[in-house]
Amino acid sequence: MDAAPRSAAPQGDGQSAPGERDPAQAARRRWMSVLAKAKLNELESAWEDLAQKPAYDWLRRPEVGMVMVRARTGGTGGRFNLGQMTVTRCALRLASGEAGLGYVQGRSKRHAELAALFDALLQDEGRRGELEDSVIAPLEASHLDRRTARSRKANSTKVNFFTMVRGENE
């Protein structure tokens, strides 16, 4: 069955505007973002280390497609289409019932699959705390490390202007 799994929406109203999201939605938003930005090898080893690997069925097999990236004129103005990016998506349901969704940049079906698996597992409140500590927090830290490393190198190229005194009978 490749039908769109509407049931993959979190508890509560999946249609609410981004501004009025509930805490459960905010939490899921965060872990899905972390999973999407993680490196594939990090996800693989997190999966390797998982004690109980769940059985699952596909709701939508991994599919490579595109998303049109939009931007704003001048950064703040009207929207325009900048160009597209490759994205892979999939949806699956664990034997225990939770539906997980993977939407990740690029063309790695495995990345989408692992993101969807962890997304489903994280919806089980019994496992969430442990997965947060053992998977999400380390992935987030690792992403932040990469970002900080780049940023520190960039900051080494920041110009420090100094003023020279001139004239005035030195």
């Binding site: 769109a4 999946g14 939407y103």
Partner: peptide, 10 residues
Amino acid sequence: ELGFPIELGE
């Protein structure tokens, strides 16, 4: 499927 925004990547 969700109705709210998630990050796809950077």
